[in-house]
Amino acid sequence: MIVRRGRSEDLPWLIEHDDASEAWISRCVQHGEYFVAEKDGELVGFLRFSRFWGKIPYMDMIRVLPSRQHDGVGTALFHAWETAMIDEGAEHLMTSSEWAEAEPQAWHRRNGFKAAGSIDLRIIQPSPEIFFVKDISGTRKE
């Protein structure tokens, strides 16, 4: 499996598989805010991130094709992103999931995230959003 930053040639696949708008996907690719996983020459997953408050790397979305789930694709995407953020000098990572989503929360915890609070967004989704933070300070390799 190859995990790399998303490129402009990945746009058609990303537009098909990400729920964000085409304009936002293009903007994120342009700013290096996608990692994609390739297996056997085909894209099988992506991780899209942004920066909370303009500085803390925040994993917006991680998605793996259903046929490739439980193959380590999501973990490989996460580790590539985490390593890149450590190399860029980040001290924390953030992510979130809906309160009712037990499986994603378990995945975040397995990957070192700790719950940091929640916000009630039921005006736009069925349950509150729980936020997770991972401390990566002191892990930068010199």
Rank of each mutant, 00 (worst) to 15 (best):
D10Y: 11
Q30V: 01
P128S: 03
S8D: 12
A106M: 08
I130A: 04
S26E: 15
F35H: 15
S96E: 15
S127Y: 04
A90V: 03
E98P: 02
V44L: 05
R5A: 02
G112I: 01
Q30T: 07
I15Y: 12
G72S: 07
I136S: 00
Y34T: 14
A23F: 06
I86G: 01
A116K: 03
R63F: 13
I124K: 14
P128F: 01
I15F: 10
L93Q: 13
E16M: 14
S67M: 01
R5P: 05
T139P: 03
L121E: 01
T75Q: 15
W99T: 08
A76M: 07
Y58C: 05
I56E: 10
F78P: 01
S50K: 09
Q30G: 14
S137P: 00
W107R: 02
K55M: 11
A106H: 10
V73K: 06
E88V: 06
V44M: 07
L11G: 08
R63G: 07
R140N: 05
R110Y: 08
R109T: 12
I136R: 03
Q105C: 01
G138R: 01
V36P: 04
G89K: 05
R110P: 00
F132R: 03
A115F: 02
D87T: 11
E101Y: 06
L43M: 15
D71I: 00
M1A: 14
F78I: 08
K114F: 00
F78C: 07
Q105N: 10
V3G: 00
W81R: 09
M85N: 07
L11N: 10
R27S: 14
F131M: 05
A76T: 04
M59H: 00
H92A: 00
I119K: 09
A84W: 11
M94A: 13
M61T: 15
A80T: 09
I130S: 03
